[in-house]
Every structure is written in structure tokens, then in C-alpha cells.
Write a protein that binds this DNA or RNA. Structure first.
Length: 231
DNA sequence: AAAGGTACCAACCGCACGCCC
DNA sequence: TGGGCGTGCGGTTGGTACCTT
């Protein structure tokens, strides 16, 4: 009788907004130990106050170990532009051609850099054509020379990207280290509990281990940030 | 030094699709 | 065959950092 679709989760009991290091760690550890067969039940089993969708997104866009970190290369940018010409806004399709990159990341790069660059280039081309002095573009592709792209970005901005990317890398590598130590150490076996025990353990020693590890990770990130800032 | 503007990106939202019963 | 459910996708937004005046 017109009962619409059930909500994916109880919104009132779900945390939103940026993920804390401890949450990241908990999600990472859970997936490391149990995989992700069911996103909807995962947050409950992992002791996270998050929507399954949110966990999935966080995993795919940030925590997945096979993610390539760092800025997009010229080659990657050109690939995106080419693929966008043929595929349109099919970000996941485009992402499948760029291993280690996520659809969200590609979408962001497109919206923030590449689209503007193409618009600017088109405008430049139009301007040249209208003046009739243009040594016409030999091909119809408007992206053939994107080599000046990095010049569009102010140096300081570029540095800030470096900082951010380094932050991600440090965070991830630290997490990976801690995960392996957790899963192999004796205290870790306390964390690698059977599913039914996990939610109950969320406030136990295990969570303290997670929080401590998260703090270590953040310290490491901040050190890296400072060293970059004052280089 | 402060305020306003801009760029960037992580995360959310709603819809669509496919699978299963 | 139709409805429910889980997942994936694309658009959009909000927060933060940086830049400019």
C-alpha cells in the first residue's frame, strides 16, 4: 500500500560528515579481516555508526589499498579527456581505464581542472579563428596540446596538493602497517573476532587499540605536513 | 592582519539497475 | 511477474585551505 522503498539505514542513528581516523581504521580493519560481502550490514558488524553506503564510498574512494595516490599525470589527464569525448559523464567507465583512480576522483578532476581548461582552450581557438590568423587546428580534437596545463595551477596550490597527497599516503601506509601488526599480534586476535562479536566489542580494548593507532597515524601525518611546509 | 573570494575535494543524496524470491 | 533489496552511479553540496585585496 504505497510503502515506498525502505531507507538504506536509520538516518537518525547514523553519523554523517568527515570520517575520523578511528572510523577509517575500524572500517579498514574490518574489511581486511572479513571482506565486504554486504555493505548494509557492514557498519553494524564493524561497530560503525555509519550508513553502509557511506562505508562503501569511503572504502572505494579513500581506503582501498590499490588506489593510486598523488596528482594526475599528463597522460592520465589526456586519457580522461579522450574518454570523456567518447563516453561522456560515464565516470565509472572512464575510471575503469585508469587503474587506481576512482570515478569520484576523476569527476572532481574533470569538474575542477579539465573542463575549465577545455573551455578556455575553445575560447582561445575561437578567438584565433575569428581573427583569421589561426594556423587552423589540424584535428578536431580540442585537447591535443594540454602540455601547459600545470601552468594554470599556481605554484602554491600545487604545493598544497602535494601536502594533501602526502597526507593521504602517510595515512594509508601507516594504516597498512598497523593493520598487519594488529592482525598478527596477540592483541589483534582480540580484534579479529567472529562477526557476531564485533559490534559488542566496539567499546572494548579493541577500540582503544584502534584509537591509539589512529593517533599515531595522525601524528605521522602532521610531521610530514610540517616538514613540507618549511622546506 | 583581516575579510571576502575562489578552488578543491570528500561526502551525501537520490535514482537506476540487476538480482533474488 | 512483480516487488523488495543491495549496490553502483552521477550530480550536487558543504567544509576547508589558499589567494587576493
Amino acid at each position: 500500500m504505497g510503502r515506498g522503498r525502505a531507507p538504506c539505514c536509520d538516518k537518525s542513528k547514523v553519523k554523517k560528515g568527515p570520517w575520523s581516523p578511528a572510523e577509517d581504521f575500524r572500517l579498514l580493519t574490518f574489511i581486511h579481516n572479513h571482506g565486504h560481502t554486504n555493505w548494509r550490514s557492514l557498519p553494524k558488524l564493524a561497530g560503525l555508526l555509519r550508513c553502509g553506503k557511506s562505508c562503501r564510498l569511503r572504502w572505494i574512494n579513500y581506503l582501498r589499498p590499490d588506489l593510486k595516490r598523488g596528482n594526475f599525470t599528463k597522460e592520465e589527464e589526456e586519457t580522461i579527456i579522450k574518454l570523456h569525448q567518447s563516453l561522456g559523464n560515464k565516470w565509472s567507465k572512464i575510471a575503469s581505464y585508469l587503474p587506481g583512480r576512482t570515478d569520484n576522483e576523476i569527476k572532481n578532476v574533470w569538474n575542477t581542472h579539465l573542463k575549465k581548461r577545455l573551455i578556455k582552450k575553445d575560447a582561445d581557438d575561437d578567438h584565433k579563428n575569428s581573427r583569421g590568423s589561426c594556423s587552423s587546428p589540424s584535428s578536431s580534437s580540442s585537447y591535443s596540446s594540454s602540455s601547459s596545463s600545470s601552468n594554470l595551477r599556481p605554484h602554491t596550490h600545487y604545493e598544497s596538493h602535494q601536502v594533501r597527497n602526502m597526507e593521504k599516503e602517510v595515512l594509508l601506509s601507516a594504516k597498512n602497517q598497523d593493520i598487519s601488526s594488529i592482525t598478527t599480534s596477540s592483541s589483534a586476535s582480540d580484534c579479529a573476532e567472529p562477526k557476531e562479536a564485533i559490534s559488542a566489542s566496539s567499546s572494548s580494548n579493541c577500540s582503544h587499540e584502534v584509537d591509539k593507532a589512529a593517533v599515531v597515524v595522525y601524528d605521522e601525518v602532521n610531521k610530514q605536513k610540517m616538514s613540507l611546509k618549511f622546506r
